[in-house]
Simulated assay, not measured.
Amino acid sequence: MHSDKSSWLIKGLALAGICFLYFPILIILIYAFNTEESAFSFPPKGFTVEWFFKAAERDDIFQAIGFSLQIAAISTLIALLLGSLAALALYRNNFPGKNVFTLILILPIALPGIVTGLSLLSTFKSAGITPGMATITIGHATFCVVIVYNNVVARLRRISFNIVEASYDLGATALQTFWHVILPNLGASLFAGGLLAFALSFDELIVTIFTAGHEPTLPLWLLNQLSRPRDVPITNVVALLVMLLTMLPVLLSYWLTKDR
């Protein structure tokens, strides 16, 4: 028997959960327009866009953004290549140790970032590799690969293998079948997985702390600025812009992969 009380209870809990998740973002939005130079003066005494103009004059902000964009782009390309190839290799092929290999492949996304960061740092030090752009990119690619792999596998499960067999029956080679049949069906999943991987790499902090060199990414720049009280209003502006930028690819990825 349906109960209106239980329905309202579920709706209330859902609304409370949404408020809990998004209330900090609302606070950052308010502080970004606060007229006070004090970092966390509440309630705000007025609203201004002055901090946005000051942020636009800071070269270090654009350098950090550019560095993060480069890392995210390279990590995403690596993830698209390795993640899609791994998904195609593991989906229909059965071999001894397949489950173990699959577990090892998806493990980086389940491990705490500090564990992944420490492991990578130890590996790089043992190999004599100097932390820098390459080490950050490798660190980000470890979990970006999983994102692409999961998206591609999910799509492969919804593709009928009959179209592949039909392609072979019509005389197409394996390469032609992949290019004209499989790849078009994977296009949206690859694009969505790439967008998610890019967003995760762009704002990754924990792994970056252990693998970064002297040039900071944007999340590291934000973390360093919190120790400078006079720069906190500008930091709030940058944090707001980062949230908006990372939100767009996630929303676009959701729209591409949702069932219509």
Rank of each mutant, 00 (worst) to 15 (best):
G194A: 11
G132D: 07
T173H: 10
N93V: 14
I78W: 05
I114D: 00
I129M: 07
L105A: 06
I206E: 02
S6Q: 12
V100P: 01
L69W: 05
D59R: 15
F95C: 09
L9C: 12
S167A: 15
L120K: 06
A174H: 14
P233W: 12
A199E: 10
F47C: 02
R92A: 07
A73P: 03
L220Y: 06
C19R: 11
M243G: 09
V152E: 03
D4I: 15
L205V: 13
G17D: 09
L244S: 06
V242E: 13
A64Q: 08
I27E: 04
T173L: 10
T130P: 00
P43A: 09
S253N: 09
K45V: 05
A199H: 08
A134M: 13
H214Q: 09
E36G: 12
T177P: 00
G97P: 06
A239W: 01
N224C: 05
G128F: 05
N93Y: 08
T48A: 09
A14F: 14
P233L: 13
A141K: 04
G66C: 04
V145L: 14
T135N: 05
T123N: 09
F191W: 10
F20E: 06
P24A: 10
V164A: 06
Y22W: 12
G113W: 00
L156N: 00
A188P: 03
S227E: 10
G193V: 05
T257N: 07
N224Q: 15
H214D: 04
L226G: 00
K45D: 01
